[in-house]
């Protein structure tokens, strides 16, 4: 899933300052799971903004709130038109994709990002998320024991560890495991160290040219697929 962190109240207040009527728009999928912008975060942010306005004594804002199932999918945005009739701005608590999808869907209303989209990751434990995929478009997890060097090595290098790790930790951050030591240990356990001994050529940064687009409609509809 996509993981994000809500922006500071201060930054959000600065962004909404010119717009009196604000719709705080949550997202019911990834942002709900990572506690950055689901229904309860929308409600909490609404209260925090109101409280801040009262405290500062210069409040001009009125707030409304709404959460859609997925901001990144037009199918779930049909209810939005009626929610935005008396609104000057949308403060989206969707990820960067959600913000842009809303902006594309509603041409006339400004959309502000309420979260900083951070990475694609997994839940490590309650309240802890770890990055696991960089969406490079050329998955090599087969060769690396299911551990991604592009995401988990700070340098994203492909032919083994640099010389900077100590006690199995990364030179860039002593709290982070060296990805290549994890890969070595895992491949050793799987008796696949030959995979680490291979030479891997430089990455192809055009594996999917930016901005990336995947077309699968035709294949699904007609059964035509090259596998």
């Amino acid at each position: 899933m996509i993981v994000a962190e809500q922006k500071s109240l201060e930054e959000i207040r600065r962004m909404i300052a010119p717009y009196p009527r604000v719709l705080i728009l949550g997202c019911g999928t990834c942002m709900t799971v990572c506690n950055a912008g689901g229904e309860s975060e929308v409600s909490f942010l609404h209260n925090s903004l109101r409280l801040a306005e009262v405290r500062s004594g210069d409040g001009i804002h009125t707030f409304t709130e709404h959460t859609v199932k997925r901001q990144c999918d037009p199918e779930f945005l049909e209810t939005l038109s009626e929610k935005t009739i008396d609104v000057d701005v949308i403060l989206s608590l969707g990820c960067g994709i959600g913000v842009q999808a809303i902006a594309e869907y509603l041409g006339d209303i400004p959309v502000l990002p309420g979260v900083n989209t951070s990475f694609m990751g997994m839940t490590k434990e309650s309240g802890v998320w770890d990055e696991r995929c960089a969406a490079c478009g050329e998955c090599r997890l087969e060769d690396t024991g299911g551990i991604c060097p592009i995401t988990r090595c700070t340098k994203g290098i492909l032919n083994g560890p640099c010389a900077g790790s100590k006690n199995g930790k990364c030179e860039a951050n002593k709290d982070v495991d060296c990805a290549w030591i994890l890969i070595y240990k895992r491949l050793e356990r799987l008796q696949q160290l030959d995979k680490m001994r291979r030479y891997y050529s430089p990455r192809n940064f055009r594996a999917i040219p930016r901005p990336r687009r995947i077309l699968s409609k035709v294949e699904i509809a007609t059964g035509e697929s090259d596998g």
């Binding site: 340098k155 994203g156 290098i157 032919n159 640099c162 430089p202």
Partner: peptide, 8 residues
């Protein structure tokens, strides 16, 4: 950057 690594 690290477009390449030392081996590459």
């Amino acid at each position: 950057v690290f477009d390449l690594d030392s081996v590459q």
